[in-house]
Amino acid sequence: MSNPSVLPGKVAWTGDNPFIYLKEDPAADFTSLSVFFRINASPFGIGQAALVVVRPYDEDGYGIVLTDNDSLTNYLIDEFVSKFVLFRPCSFMDKLEIISDADFKTIREGDDWIEEAHSGDRSIRLIWRDLGTPFAVDVPGPESGTGQHEMFSVFRIAQAGEVFLDGERLPGNTVQRDFLNGPGQSAGMAISETWVEV
């Protein structure tokens, strides 16, 4: 029987990191990119952040983040989100509107999962519909979103997703795309996700 091993790399962060990517035209670019973070350990402590980028590839695109830990949020955006393949072409990732002191709420309704964030009159509501069977992945450093971290996670792909910004539903729907274990919709839960420096 083999003994368990301890990985040598430094843990960059661990927590949940679900996503919802929407398109108005399935044949065109994504029209909004949304991610949520619930971080349980990192160099900048614990915290939560909800990020929505609207028209990510247009000159008039914009992004908003609601968070309860500014330092952690800046770290996640600079070192991770801005390096994820769909976010790399966004020219305004360093100009996101970051709103502090947000309150967060998680709602579970059967196989649906809802994350809400509020700060003053600003709000983000993310909904994942009909989550699928969990599966685990181990993504080596060269193939991960940053190319510098090994990533471990449990995923549950949703059959649909919705994004509300300040009470208004963003247009578009999830689309089928190639994912780690085959085709799946462009929305899902990444649960117990951990990024380890390589």
Rank of each mutant, 00 (worst) to 15 (best):
G61Q: 10
A117F: 03
S153V: 12
K83V: 11
D29Q: 05
G161P: 01
G132D: 11
I99D: 15
L51S: 10
S153W: 06
I114C: 07
G141I: 12
N69T: 02
P56E: 05
F19R: 09
R38H: 08
E143D: 15
N3P: 03
D101L: 13
I64F: 13
D101W: 10
F87Q: 01
S153I: 03
D178F: 10
G120W: 13
N40F: 13
T174R: 01
E59T: 06
A27S: 06
R108N: 13
S5R: 13
P4M: 02
D25N: 15
G147D: 09
E79R: 10
A28G: 02
V53C: 10
R122C: 08
C90A: 12
D112T: 12
T146N: 12
M1F: 11
D70F: 02
H149W: 12
F36H: 03
H149N: 15
C90H: 03
D68Y: 07
G147Y: 04
G120A: 14
L72P: 14
D78E: 13
P43V: 04
L33V: 02
R177K: 05
N74M: 02
S144V: 07
D101N: 15
A27K: 15
G15I: 12
F135A: 07
S32C: 07
L170E: 00
V81C: 00
P4A: 09
F135M: 11
P89A: 13
R108A: 04
I20A: 01
E24T: 15
L66W: 08
Q48R: 12
D178P: 03
A50P: 00
L33Q: 02
L66A: 15
S5P: 03
L76V: 11
W128K: 07
F36R: 02
E193I: 04
V154K: 08
G141E: 05
G61H: 00
L22I: 03
W13A: 01
Y21C: 00
L131A: 08
S100V: 09
Y21I: 01
S100Q: 14
G184M: 10
I127P: 03
D112M: 11
L170I: 01
V81S: 04
A49H: 06
V52Y: 07
F37M: 04
F30S: 01
F84D: 00
S192P: 10
V54G: 06
D121G: 06
V11F: 08
G184N: 09
I157F: 00
Q48E: 14
D70K: 15
G184W: 12
K10H: 04
W13E: 10
P89V: 13
F155A: 01
A49T: 15
G132Y: 08
V196G: 04
Y62E: 12
F44D: 06
S144T: 10
P43R: 13
L7M: 14
A158Q: 07
E116H: 04
S186W: 06
V85P: 06
F155M: 11
A136T: 09
A136M: 08
E59Y: 03
R122A: 14
D94I: 11
L72R: 03
R88V: 10
N69H: 15
V65R: 06
D103T: 13
E24K: 13
D112A: 14
G147T: 15
N3D: 09
E59K: 02
F179A: 10
A50E: 14
K83I: 13
